[in-house]
């Protein structure tokens, strides 16, 4: 167990050193959420209390899920994967390391809009424990989604980037960010259920505004459910496609 955790940590450290600075990660993990933020906020007269759960949610969603998609295709292309697989680390540890890298990236970058809100807009955290819990599970969940998206055995990172944006953009629009869930039509409310981001943003509303559409328990449980689905299917698919990468 200790050896396994060490492996996960070493892999994550490797990923932070190499992949945080790759163009697709910087573009879709930093620049893209920043412009979304501008598009979302500028010229609209909405209260920061409504604004910030959405902004922090989007940032966390895009940053945490932007590292995973490029690692496996990149390692396949650069022919570094086989050497890694022949080390005493399992594929599960490798994938968990990749997930951990995205997880940390998501949290660190999301601190930026958070501090912005706390210091500049008088945002207050009403329930720190739930805030931390929500951020941790959300980041873990989104990062696992990123790794799941990289499971097709291609060696072309841009193909996977395309796929992941194809998946992530619609998710963003159905998550009750631009229009709160309670104001959505019935169909919109139903569709919103299928996005993990819905629960993150709803949790953040609870934390900052004190009100939420779903209960805190339901939000956390749904995040955990999505996390398990992404994690298990990601591990399965990667394992199945591994030989095709060599």
């Amino acid at each position: 167990m200790g050896q396994k955790l060490r492996g996960v940590w070493v892999i994550a450290k490797k990923d932070t050193g190499i992949y945080y600075f790759k163009a697709p990660v910087l573009i879709f993990g930093l620049v893209f959420p920043f412009f979304l933020f501008l598009a979302f906020a500028i010229g609209r007269d909405i209260s920061p209390l409504f604004l910030f759960p959405g902004i922090i949610g989007i940032t966390l969603f895009f940053t945490a899920s932007s590292v995973g998609p490029i690692i496996m295709p990149w390692e396949t292309r650069m022919k570094t994967l086989e050497r890694l697989l022949s080390c005493p680390v399992s594929i599960q540890s490798i994938l968990l390391g990749d997930i951990l890298a995205g997880f940390l990236f998501g949290i660190i970058i999301s601190l930026v809009p958070l501090l912005f809100g706390l210091l500049g807009f008088g945002l207050t955290i009403n329930n720190l424990a739930i805030f931390i819990l929500g951020i941790l599970f959300s980041s873990f969940c989104f990062s696992s989604l990123g790794v799941l998206l990289s499971s097709p055995p291609t060696d072309n990172p841009s193909n996977i980037m395309m796929l992941s944006n194809l998946v992530r953009l619609p998710i963003m629009f159905i998550s009750g960010i631009f229009i709160p869930i309670e104001e959505l039509p019935v169909a919109g409310k139903i569709i919103a259920n299928f996005s993990p981001l819905t629960y993150t943003v709803d949790l953040l509303r609870y934390v900052f505004q004190g009100v939420s559409y779903y209960s805190v328990t339901r939000n956390v449980l749904m995040l955990i459910l999505f996390l398990i689905i992404f994690l298990v299917s990601g591990m399965k698919l990667h394992k199945r496609n591994l030989a095709k990468r060599l």
């Binding site: 190499i18 022919k79 570094t80 086989e82 050497r83």
Partner: peptide, 16 residues
């Protein structure tokens, strides 16, 4: 795996 040293046929160190 812990007792092996390996040089695969087509492998690279991390160039970054």
């Amino acid at each position: 795996k812990s007792i092996m040293g390996i040089v695969p046929e087509l492998a690279n160190p991390y160039i970054d």
